[in-house]
Amino acid sequence: MNNKYYEYLNNSSNIYPVAGEENVIYDEYLRQQMVPNNFNDMMDIQNFIGLKPNMQNNINNDCGLYSTYEGFLKGNMFPELYSPYKNYKPQKIKASSEGEALMLQISELGFALKDIDLFLDVHPDNSCMINKYNEILNKKNMLVNEYEKTYGPITLKSKGLNKNPWAWNDVTAPWMRGY
């Protein structure tokens, strides 16, 4: 896991997709967040488990939205609405386990869904956004299935509840585990 991530950083042609200008700005943002400033940072990155940008999200047809990764860190999927407080720069989200890193990806997609849902409630005839919503929903459902197979159910509708003892108890309460 560590080596793959470091390779990912060094292999610039894989990281930066070819597209319009908004991607250049996004890439620069990413670069600032992830390039090590010193030896400690570099060790930190090599050992980094956490939320990482999924480059498949930042290609064409993004409806003018941030990538789900950037939107989640910022708390806002809409670049024209984003307004930080006093130059606050959103931090990388770190995880202390693979399970947490996977759950963070689920939260990233779930957040995008909520923000697009609120938009569609007021603008119900935007076909780009409707397609985006369903695309993200499919991805999220796949990640939820993957998570539940290994770590346990996260809703009361999960197929993983068909076990004895009651598997709902397998997953710690969110406020205690922090995600």
Binding site: F72, G75, I93, K94, M103, L104, I106, S107, G110, F111, K114, P153, I154, T155, L156, K157, V171, A173, P174, W175, G178, Y179
Partner: peptide, 14 residues
């Protein structure tokens, strides 16, 4: 209302 056993955004206070 249905419950999803996760926080919308993580909280990890050391």
């Amino acid at each position: 209302w249905a419950y999803e056993k996760k926080l919308q955004y993580p909280v990890n206070i050391k």
